[in-house]
Structures are given as C-alpha cells and as structure tokens.
Design a protein around this nucleic acid. Structure first.
Length: 800
RNA sequence: GCGGAUAUGGCGGAAUUGGCAGACGCGCUAGAUUCAGGUUCUAGUGGGGGCAACUUCGUGGAGGUUCAAGUCCUCUUAUCCGCACCA
C-alpha cells in the first residue's frame, strides 16, 4: 500500500498558493479568531523539527476554526535582526541583508512544504524599513513620554561579541549567545522604563488566560516585595536610607551593610579611618564580574567602616556599618539594616564578623541559626512591639516610622529597567540626534524610517562602540531643532524591539500611515491564542506586554493586554532523550522527514508524539505508525457502502466528533488523533463506511493532515474543496449507550461486569449485580454492609 | 538555597478529574501472504501462578483518608526547568 504523497502534497500546496483560501478577510462580518505563533529568527541552519511542533498545533486550530465559520488570522513573519546573521556577515563579508534574504527564502520554502495555512499576504520582516519605521516610531513615542532615557551605567559586556547585553541575556555569567565571558563596563546606554509598568504587568496577569507556569515565571521575574524604607541617622550626619521587608525586626538590627558602589562611601572619605581597606574592597568588587560576585556566594566578605556609625532609631544605639558585596546597589536603596537573628545571610555575616545577634521573634534558637519564619511568631526584646504577632508588629512599626517621619511603607521590584542599546550594526538605528545645544533630539517623524547606512565592515570597534560610529557621513548631521551640527546616535536597538509589537502589524501589514489602522486593531486584537517557547516567558512576553500597555495608554491599541491566551510547547528532544544539538549529532532535519514520509505524516507525528506541553523524544520508529494510519485512510474509499447517516457507527462518529472538536481546541491533538485511529479501526472492522461517514472523517482529519484529505475529497467527487466545508456537528442525544457494561466490585475489588440499561436505578443496578452468578457465589454466606452504585460506572458491594 | 514541574508496561503516552489502570501508537511474539527481505493481514502482548475459566501483585518509595486512590493528604527519593546574596 502507500500513496503518492509527494505528488499529492505538491499539487495542493500549489493550489493553495493559487486560491489563497487561508487569507484573513479584511472587513469580514464573521467572528474573528487570531492565532499566533512566535515568528522565527531565520537562522542559517534552517528549520528545526521543534519549529513545526508549535506551528502545526496552531495550524490545526486555525484550520479547525475556519471550518467552524471564523475569519481566521494566522500570520507568519521574520524576526530577522540579530547577532548570528551579523556574525555570519562579518565572517563571510556578505551584507546581512543578503544573508537574511537567503535564510528567509529557505525558511519559507520549508514552512510551505509542511502545508501550514499561513496568510502569506501578511508576511512581515522586522528588517524591512517599512516595518522598522514603526519600531522607531514607538521608540520616539516612548522618548516623548519620558520612558526612554540615557544613563551612564555599569553594563554587561560580552568580550567576544564586543557588545553590551541586557541582564536577561547573561546566563550563568556568560553570554547567552556565544558562551563567552561577560565583564562589567561603564557605558552610556539607552534605557526603557519598564519598571514604571511593574505593578500593572503583575496585576493584569489576573485577567489573562496564560498557563500557570508562565504566570508564575512572570511574577517571579517582576519580583514584588512589600516592606518599608527606613532612615537611619549616622555619626557622619548623613541619613542612610534602607529597604527592608521585615520592619518588625528593627529592634534586632545590630549592624548595617551598604553596597560597595554606594555613593555615601566617597562622601565619607575623610571620616573613614580605614578608607584604604574600604577602597581596596570596593575596587575588588568592581573588577569582579557578576558571575564571580555571585559564585562566591557561600562565604561572606566585607569591611567595617571605621569612624562612621549608624544609629538605630528605635533604641538610639550606635551600630557599625560594613560594606559588602552581598548587598546589591541595584536593588532597593543599596543599603540594608542587618538583622542576624532573622535573616540567613545576615546571620552568616554576623558570625564571621562577630557582631551581636539579638532575638526579636520568639520561636527559634538564634545562636544556632537565623529564625526566618515570619508567618507565626511573637515579638520579644522589641520595646513597644513586645508580645505582638509579626504581622501586627509590621503595621505598628510602619505607623510609628511614618509618625516620626523617618520611614514609610514601600514596594520594590526585582524587575529592572531595560537596557535598550546595542553596539551593533544589524539592528534598528535609534532615531535620536545629539546636539550640543539641545541635548538628545528626536528625529522628526517624516524622516522615518532612519535606514542603516551601507558600510564596509560590520565589526564593532574594540572599545565597544557600534560599527555605525565609523561612518562619518552618517554620524554627522544637523540638529532637527536648531540646525547646528549634531551627531546621530550610533547604537541600535536590541532584537527584542521588533518582536515587541509585530502581532499588531499583522492586522494591517501594508499601512504606510500608521503602524496599523484603528479599525484593523479594533477587529483583530487581542490575539486569541499565542503559542511559544518557555524560553521567551520572561523576556519577549514581558517586553511586548510592556510596549502594548504603553501603546494602550497613548490610545494606539484598544486592549490592555496583547494576548488573551498564552500556551507553551515542550521541546522535541533527540532520540536518546537529550537536547537536539549539532555537537551531539542528533539533529533531525524536517526536510528529510517530509521527503521520506510526507508533510501530513510529519504533522500528524509531531501532534501525536505526546503531551504538547512536555518535552518528548523524537522516534524514527514511532513516526511509521502515523504513516500507516494515513495509508489506511487513503484506502478508506474502498469501503464506501450505501447507508443512511453514519450507518451502524452513528454513536462512534458522534463521540469522535465531540472528542476531536474539544481536544484540538485545548491543544490535545494527541488524543484527538488516537480517537480518529480508533474510529478507523471500527470502520475497518465493520468493513463499511457511508458517504456521510467518509465526509465527516475527512473533515475531522483535515486540520491535522490537510493534503491527503483535500485529495480524497476531490477524488470522491464530494464537490468544492474540503477547506470550504463546515465542521461536523455532533448530536448530544446520540452519544450515550442504551445499555452499559458496568463493573461489579466486592469490597473494592473487581469481581465481574454486568450489562444494565443506562438509566437503571440504584436498586435495579445493584439487583442485577447480585443475581450475576459469580457475584452471587461470592456473596454466599456473607453479610452485606453497604452497597454503592455510580451511574454508568460500577457497583461496589461491601460485605463481610 | 528558593520557586515550579514531573515520575504510569520494553518505549512514546492515555485515564471522563476519586470509580473496570495501561486507550492510541511503536516495539515484540506467533501465524498467513512472499523465492527472500520489506509491505500488508490475523491473533497475542504489565509481572507472578495456572492447560484453562481464573487468580494474585501492580502507577518512584513509606504511611494515611475513603466503600473505592495513578488521581486527595503527610513524609521521602530521583530527574528536569526557572531564579539565584533581591534585604
């Protein structure tokens, strides 16, 4: 057996190209459904088998929704700016634009070979000036609203890419992309104030349908902590402000710690007797990369400031001040009050530096270990807080601080502002001009897009500035405001920029007046189903939610949140269960699979491979089962027989329609396929299928295996195309059996089965069970204690 | 260290959410077709016992709740992922 999938798939892919049946209709009066998958970075390696898992899953939904009467938008595009292309360009002396074009061509033909129903008329590309014009426009709007600013700051600098990285791009102390060492460097950077949106990014998660682990990761990343800021006076006269989540333990604060970068250190230079030691420690900390700084986490280090002490406001006691790199300048106020009795880090430090430890919450043994349980516990050694439970003590001390004017309740976040500059060529130029008289001046909107200049070499310079800085003719310009000579910003935007709003552009991709028209956005947004990898949960997802909220605030988009629903697929692993990688040599190329088995088999297998959300190993054996199934489907018309409706399989068809409809929408195509396989087995056993049955079967299978079903539809002369048909409906009344087989248990153990009418009463069912020969024998001479009947399931008789 | 998830046959995985564990597929065994291999078809396939009807054990491990536990609770082990001195 077997069918000529090569010919059939080519035929239908050409047909779809010609007829464009999957184009979303502008101005349709049908209800809309917006299905979205993360657009790929068109790398030189071509499509990976992981890509189609996500794309097929949403393609199945998109096709099913079209058949169910929706005007479906299922678009695709290219997130094409970025380092690998640029590095390839540097190495091979080819313009990144050409590299990008070639890679896109390859990706596109690969995607087409899978029969994905993308609306190719809406294809977008982040490197297209007509697209990035609007990325730049959004940046100017952010700038106009004070959300983009320039800041001199220590940044992560990749020694190999010669490039500044966002915190999120540093993984385990090394560059996320190339794995090289990351050091700290001070540079003037464009920043975006995502922190201004922290609270909304957190609380609005309640209104969206994201899978729980995505929400959890976003919450952790935003990292909201409620506590208080408290002012400590010092013997130097200056006030030292700290942040704490445990203001209730203020009486237990026996020392202070400030970050090595804290500005007061320099101010106190003359008062610190051991300034040399302090400065040495500070230099040491500055030279450590973030990685080293966190790597030595176990052993606490620090230097005590001689000559300056702080005064604990609750009891007037003088307490020492240390500098230590376990306190981070970037979080809170860069200074803490240390309560060794009730904080593990403070406890370790106090033990090492012989600082007194005071117990202020009862319940542990602070000489043995810090007692950190803050839920329960009663305050001790804490003056006016004594005897209060922790929660009440917090309220009381905050009120006391407020009254004295030396502190207040405060919420802080781990989330930091977004470092938005890259010293690279292949990115969107930042449309800002620096004028000596006017400062940073935005380019007038009419001058957008600001294109990249043609250059000879794409290498960043050794000092870490962008290759654009070398192009004098581009850099030197005039100030849009005063006309004086001025210089262009030479940094470009990070790759995250173009992907932060792309889903909006799909609604109206060729608009040259706006990023998308109001009507298009009103109709198209929000995205109804967005699927992507877990690796984008904290970066892309958060950044695009931030931009969307900003665009909502300035009246550009109609919804607060961009994505109504977010799901995430598991990785496809190599045959042995490890990650697929070139170095392991276990990479499966989708082209090979399509060649050997066909796109429909490939699609079916990727959907059948397992739980969509979990990682699953590829199996070159298992895929054969999917091919066999399609071969059997291809032979199905041989069984065509006369008959009304679904013939003898009325019930099975109705059940399968229900199951497949539900499973597809909840991304459980694996069990939908299993249901179709079961139905096929039943048809085969019956050796007959009615015309209506064949039609329904093909439509149910169509979203999963579109080519073969189009072909069979046509071959059997069912009229029109299968993609024009309506999704079959099931009849609720035909789902249930008249007679059901239920289990009979005695003392919870299965002892037999009995057939009873589906609507049998308790008494009838139990009666039927008892007269069953085997059951009766078992019950012989026993006393019945309890009888349980679960409708349609079982009877359980408890007997002794 | 903190947070999250997962654990079911030889393998990938199902299980209406507390109700007949192992659907569906792979693999394997036997038979048929074939010169042979492949394909296809038929039957079987969690472990132990039995010729058999049947019986007993069984969802990482140990307890518990319940008429009934893969599913709920407590403890525990292993693996994966995320964050990592966040005061």
């Amino acid at each position: 057996m077997g069918y000529d999938f090569k010919e059939i798939e080519k035929k239908w892919q050409d047909k779809w190209d010609e007829l464009k049946p999957f184009a979303a209709v502008t101005g349709s009066d049908k209800p809309k459904f917006y299905a979205l998958v993360e657009f790929p970075y068109p790398s030189g390696a071509g499509l990976h088998v992981g890509h189609p898992r996500s794309y097929t899953a949403l393609d199945v939904i998109a096709r099913k929704q079209r058949l169910s009467g929706y005007n479906v938008l299922y678009p695709m595009g290219w997130d094409a700016f970025g380092l690998p292309t640029e590095n390839y360009a540097i190495k091979n002396k080819i313009h990144p634009e050409i590299v990008t074009r070639n890679n896109i061509a390859r990706f596109k033909s690969q995607l087409k070979s899978l029969g994905l129903s993308f609306d190719w008329d809406r294809e977008i590309n982040t490197t297209d000036p007509d697209y990035f014009k609007w990325t730049q426009w959004i940046f100017l709007k952010l700038f106009e609203h004070g959300l983009a600013y320039k800041k001199e700051m220590a940044v992560n600098f990749c020694t190999s890419c010669k490039c500044v990285l966002a915190n999120e791009e540093v993984v385990g102390g090394v560059c996320e992309r190339c794995g090289s060492e990351v050091i700290r460097k001070t540079k003037s950077q464009w920043m975006l104030k995502i922190t201004e949106y922290a609270e909304r990014l957190l609380s609005d998660l309640d209104d969206v349908d994201y899978i729980e682990r995505v929400k959890t990761q976003q919450r952790n990343w935003i990292g909201r902590s409620k506590g208080a800021e408290v002012d400590f006076t010092t013997t130097a006269g200056d006030t030292l402000r700290i942040f704490t989540t445990r203001p209730d333990t203020l009486f237990g604060a026996t020392y202070m710690v400030i970050a090595p970068e804290h500005p007061l250190i320099d101010k106190w230079r003359d008062k610190i007797a051991n300034f040399d030691a302090v400065a040495a420690y500070r230099d040491e900390a500055a030279h450590k990369s973030d990685f080293e700084r966190t790597e030595v986490a176990k052993d606490k280090t620090g230097v005590k400031l001689d000559g300056v002490e702080a005064i604990n406001p609750v009891n007037g006691r003088n307490i020492p001040i240390f500098i230590s790199d376990y306190v981070l300048i970037s979080y809170g106020t860069g200074a803490i009050m240390a309560v060794p009795g009730h904080d593990t880090r403070d406890w370790e430090f106090a033990k090492k530096f012989n600082v007194p430890i005071i117990e202020v919450v009862k319940g542990g043994n602070v000489e043995e270990a810090a007692f950190t349980d803050c839920e329960t516990g009663i305050m001790v050694n804490s003056g006016f807080l004594d005897g209060l439970p922790v929660e009440e003590a917090k309220k009381k001390i905050v009120a006391w601080l407020a009254e004295k004017g030396i502190g207040e309740e405060k919420v802080t976040y781990k989330l930091r502002d977004w470092v938005f500059s890259r010293q690279r060529y292949w990115g969107e130029p930042i449309p800002i001009v620096h004028c000596e008289h006017c400062g940073y001046v935005p380019l007038p909107v009419e001058e957008l897009p600001l294109r990249l200049p043609e250059i000879e070499s794409y290498e960043p310079s050794e000092d870490g500035s962008s290759p654009l800085a070398k192009i004098d003719s581009w850099v030197n310009t005039t100030c849009p405001k005063c006309g004086a000579p001025a210089k262009r910003e030479t940094d470009t935007m990070p790759q995250w920029a173009g992907s932060s709003w792309y889903f909006l552009r799909y609604c109206d991709p060729r608009n040259s007046e706006e990023l998308a028209s109001k009507e298009a956005l009103d109709y198209g947004t929000p995205v109804d189903g967005y699927n992507g990898g877990m690796e984008h949960t904290t970066l892309h997802l958060l950044y695009s939610r931030f931009w969307h909220k900003f665009l909502y605030d300035i009246g550009v988009v109609p919804t607060k949140e961009p994505y109504a629903k977010r799901t995430s697929h598991g990785m496809i692993l190599g045959e042995g269960g490890e990650k697929m990688s070139k170095s392991r040599g276990n990479v499966v190329n989708p082209d090979d699979i399509v060649n050997e088995y066909g796109a429909d088999t490939m699609r079916l297998y990727e959907m059948f491979i397992g739980d969509f959300e979990k990682a699953a190993p590829w199996s070159s054996q298992s895929i054969k089962g999917c091919k066999r199934f399609l071969d059997r489907v291809y032979a199905l018309p041989e069984l065509l027989a006369e008959g009304e409706g679904y013939g003898k399989l009325e019930k099975s068809f109705n059940r399968t329609i229900k199951k497949v409809s539900e499973d597809i929408m909840s991304l459980k195509a694996n069990t939908a396929i299993a249901a179709l396989m079961e139905l096929l087995n039943e048809i085969a056993a019956e050796k007959a299928i009615t015309a209506a049955g064949l039609k329904a079967f093909l439509i149910l299978l169509n979203p999963l295996a579109p080519h073969i079903t189009e072909e069979l539809w046509e071959q059997n002369g069912f009229g029109g195309y299968i993609h024009q048909q309506s999704w079959p409906e099931y009849d609720e009344s035909k789902l249930a059996d008249d007679v059901v087989e239920i289990a009979v248990q005695i003392n919870g153990k299965l002892r037999g089965t009995v057939e009873i009418p589906a609507d049998a009463s308790d008494a009838d069912a139990i009666g039927a069970a008892k007269v069953n020969g085997k059951i009766a024998a078992e019950l012989e001479g026993k006393q019945i204690i309890k009888e349980i009947f679960v409708k349609g399931r079982l009877v359980n008789i408890v007997a002794r």
